[in-house]
């Protein structure tokens, strides 16, 4: 439906623009002056200044994999994160845990777990969907590489970034 926008009634001085242009110039000049005098501090000088200490608890940096307090890979390669990941950044090759392993009870583990960080959009859906509390978005945000291959985080890298998270899932622990 057509909607008529009411135009403001301008005075003569407003109509000839010039005073307003000068007022605008004054505003921008004020900003310029304050910047030059170092009174405004908005931008951080990145590599020297960092915001790391202020990152909130819920900050979503690079997704990582974690191990539990027994050193078990939490991920059982259920591939739900691979399914949910909107840009399809995750690629998992599932495998079975050999029966002689101390974690044979878990049966399944990821043989390979790759997250393509050039695709990841840090949405956190993988963390949310994981039924085993195995994948977490940590605070690493400076993910760089010199080639596409560099940007793929393999399993080792993911565990290195993720570390250990104790006491989240108990169902696989040996019974007391």
């Amino acid at each position: 439906m057509a909607y008529t926008v009411r135009r403001p009634n301008l005075t003569f001085w407003e109509k000839i623009y010039l005073p307003n242009i000068i007022a605008g110039l004054a505003i921008t000049f004020k900003h310029l002056k304050k910047m030059l005098k170092g009174e405004t501090h908005v931008v951080m000088q990145y590599p020297e200044e960092k915001w790391d200490a202020h990152l909130p608890e819920y900050y979503r940096g690079a997704p990582t994999l974690v191990k539990d307090e027994h050193g078990r890979e939490r991920c059982v390669s259920c591939q739900l994160c691979e399914f949910i990941c909107p840009p399809r950044a995750i690629k998992i090759t599932p495998g079975s845990i050999p029966s002689e392993s101390k974690f044979a009870k878990v049966e399944k583990f990821p043989e390979a777990f790759d997250i393509d960080m050039s695709r990841c959009i840090y949405c956190g859906l993988c963390e949310e969907v994981c039924p085993e509390q195995a994948i977490f978005l940590r605070k690493d945000y400076a993910v760089t590489g010199e080639s596409r291959a560099d940007m793929v985080h393999h399993k080792e890298k993911l565990y290195e970034l993720g570390g250990t998270m104790p006491d989240l899932v108990h169902k696989w622990n040996p019974e007391k």
Partner: peptide, 9 residues
């Protein structure tokens, strides 16, 4: 087929 691929894929 065990542990090869989730069926929804």
């Amino acid at each position: 087929f065990r542990f090869k691929m989730r069926v929804w894929f």
